[in-house]
């Protein structure tokens, strides 16, 4: 079995993000970049399947700038077998999904695991688009994945508003990982060493023959308004009044 796992290069959630003066994006110089945390969970799940079933190849895929190699190496260091980097300059979600279709056609995986969303723009779209374009079953926001005995189908528990939903479907399929699916491992030093020798293929997005024209345009980016200091109220009545008339939340 082959599992394709997506990996996006995103700013470290712990770094302080500033919007650039032109309002066209964030200041990228000096930022630390990491693997999108939900993608780490996706990688971990693929590795656990590999460990449980043995004959599984885990391929990590990133669509983005050349530096995304670093994040792919982290996936390899965690234990993935090989990596594919599709070089593309700031593709939108639709473009990424179309590129992934091409890779799925080429690689013929049984399962594609994605993070439920990337923590940079929080779009939460690529998995669903990919499932639609391929016409494959999908389970998004999953917190548990179990293979059927014959390994031809899976059962997933999804986190949905108000509870858990259990669904079962035949493979091949698309799965997007939620926070509680697993706790990703740390890359070990021997893993890091081995990763340096694992294959990393580079593909130019333009060579795949897909329409990369952006469907989404960012018109303006602005930081949220700075928080102003709070104030003390004298009584419950004053609090209720303030919540009603000033904050307008009651």
């Amino acid at each position: 079995m082959k599992i394709l796992v997506t990996v996006k290069r995103v700013p470290d959630p712990e770094s302080s993000i500033k919007v650039n003066p032109e309002g066209t994006g964030i200041v990228e110089s000096g930022l630390k970049w990491v693997v999108n945390p939900f993608d780490e969970i996706a990688i971990e799940e693929a590795l656990r399947i590999k460990e449980a079933q043995g004959d599984v190849e885990v391929v990590v895929v990133s669509v983005g700038v050349s530096e995304s190699q670093e994040q792919l190496r982290t996936g390899l260091a965690m234990g993935a077998d090989r990596a594919i980097l599709v070089k593309a300059d700031r593709p939108d979600t639709a473009a990424v999904a179309k590129i992934l279709v091409k890779l799925v056609e080429k690689e013929q995986p049984t399962l594609v695991i994605l993070g439920k969303q990337a923590i940079d723009d929080d779009s939460n779209e690529v998995g669903q688009m990919l499932a639609h374009l391929l016409g494959w079953p999908q389970a998004t926001f999953i917190s548990k994945l179990t293979f059927a005995g014959d390994k031809a189908s899976v059962e997933c528990i999804r986190e949905v508003d108000g509870g858990m939903e259990t669904i079962a479907f035949a493979l091949p399929a698309i799965i997007t990982a939620d926070l509680r699916l697993n706790e990703p491992r740390y890359a070990s030093l021997p893993g890091i060493m081995k990763a340096r020798k694992k294959p990393m293929e580079e593909i130019d997005a333009a060579s795949l023959g897909v329409d990369l024209t952006p469907r989404v345009r960012i018109k303006k980016m602005a930081p949220p308004p700075a928080r102003t200091a709070g104030r003390k109220v004298e009584s419950v009545d004053e609090l209720i009044n303030a919540l009603q008339t000033e904050a307008k939340v009651m």
């Binding site: 670093e70 890359a187 030093l189």
Partner: peptide, 22 residues
């Protein structure tokens, strides 16, 4: 910590990843 540490020729990708993981 990182902003006070000058670049140095002795570190490669594996050191960066080990730092991250640790």
């Amino acid at each position: 910590f990182d902003s006070t540490k000058p670049n140095s020729p002795f570190y490669n990708e594996s050191h960066r990843q080990w730092r991250d993981s640790l």
